[in-house]
Design a protein around this nucleic acid. Structure first.
Lengths: 256, 256
DNA sequence: CGAACCCTTGAGTCGGTTCAAAGCAGGTGG
DNA sequence: CCACCTGCTTTGAACCGACTCAAGGGTTCG
């Protein structure tokens, strides 16, 4: 993985492609399997067509490339079509905090609406494809289509709720609980996308998990080993199988 | 302070008052000193009048009362007119995590848009007044007034950015850094509202600060004493004076 | 004026970090 | 196709920052 931090953001440094400039691919929103997870959830056929016209589809982002960097001007939001990404905020002194991991259907860039500049780095952890949604057009369209407006608000609010959950995790859970909650969250998100909820690949390193959970990579490794010894999971490198999901759930809601 | 957790939410259990039912008070948005911090920032006179018609002003919330409880149906957002509040998320096992403290001009209830139900408890830490903004009307009006729409989006995004900052704090700062960052944040917010940035009252208890910062109340007390011994602050009960703001700033951006 | 709540401080403990070393996997170039 | 090399992971031992438990004093508000 080329993790050179000098690499400029792939997409935001280019001007936003105009929808008419690029050939339409078959994967329009109306035919997209992620539709009900993504921005156009709940729209009717005519509204979907309007959204289709707005979206620049299937922009590739290579593993190790940034979708955008902190400080870049907001032009578009991005929906992940395929792949896996992480967002992280940088402290002035260089410390990095992973703020979230993203997968298909997730809408990225919401942090940039506040100031018009992205406030975090978002990096592809595997080769990915994103749909680009010019933000100005989205605002315009959501004035015309109430159900689009409503769903966009819900998505922003959902991100706030997710953040509260992360605060709870970081502020009041112990290492084992944090990791259990993390695995259950991944499990549930894979399930919602039609993948196995009990066996999947961790796309991120132990260090990235640790950064997200406020722990060191050695702690992640130790707790995973411990879970394995207890028969809660089977770990083999990045591959993980949840062997006893109920025990994990008990761990999370356990009294300290 | 009556902290009886059985008390139902003050406002959300009542039906939303219709704007025509209540007499208009003088404190319309157009005359409100918080206008530029609050929802109607950047609107012109005519747009302000439209917003004025939507808002139910000056609903009192007594110290110790809940503005809303987790699980309550979303009817309205609330803007704090005067006072001070905290929001907290509850873990199933009873652990509480304070997710934020709110003061005049802050817009509350954004977490509830996601599911239509509030996801946290919000409680007044001192006698307060809020302006009630029926959410359905806000969505409608923000379709008509682009600059209102834009500003509402910015406010939601700003909350997401704030949350990322809290994650950074909880995930990668040590106790002293967390408390320094907390004090600087309060200082900056008071300054933005025209109050002293160097001397103010902590409206919350040490325990609530601790919950927010992922620390125990004893740690808060110890670190405050330590800051005082170092000449960074002067503490006398809830009253705090920042004696060396540069030293606090250095602390926050310090290499570990 | 009393009672409940809040705050401070000390001593001992512990969960997670730090530092260190070794093993492993996957990708690259010869 | 194999060997190397780099980055990732595991595990151990020692350490330390924050927690726990406990006691005492202070403040606030009904």
């Amino acid at each position: 993985m080329s993790k050179n931090p000098q690499i400029p953001a792939l997409v935001t440094t280019q001007p936003c492609l105009s929808p008419v400039d690029i050939p339409k691919l078959q994967s329009v929103c109306s035919a997209c399997s992620l539709r009900e997870l993504c921005l156009p959830a709940g729209l009717d056929t005519k509204e979907l067509a309007q959204v289709d016209r707005m979206v620049n589809r299937r922009q590739p982002v290579k593993r190790g490339d940034y979708l955008y960097r902190a400080g870049a001007t907001l032009r578009s939001l991005f929906a992940i079509r395929t792949g896996f990404m992480k967002s992280s905020v940088l402290h002035e002194d260089g410390r990095e905090q992973v703020a979230g991991f993203h997968m298909m259907g997730d809408l990225l860039g919401l942090d940039a609406i506040s100031t018009g500049q992205h406030m975090c780095d978002t990096l592809a952890l595997e080769d990915s494809e994103v749909c680009e949604i010019p933000f100005a057009v989205l605002e315009e369209l959501s004035r015309e289509i109430p159900s689009l407006q409503q769903h966009f608000h819900r998505i922003m609010s959902r991100e706030i709720v997710r953040d509260y959950g992360v605060m709870l995790l970081l502020g009041s859970m112990r290492a084992e609980e944090r990791l259990a909650a993390f695995l259950l969250n991944l499990s549930q998100r894979f399930a919602a996308r039609g993948y196995s909820s009990l066996e999947f690949n961790l796309r991120m390193t132990r260090e990235e998990i640790g950064s997200f959970l406020g722990l060191k990579l050695e702690t992640i490794s130790r707790v995973l080993s411990h879970f394995q010894n207890e028969g809660l999971v089977e770990v083999r490198n990045k591959r993980i199988r949840i062997a006893n999901i109920d025990a994990l759930r008990t761990l999370v809601s356990q009294q300290t």
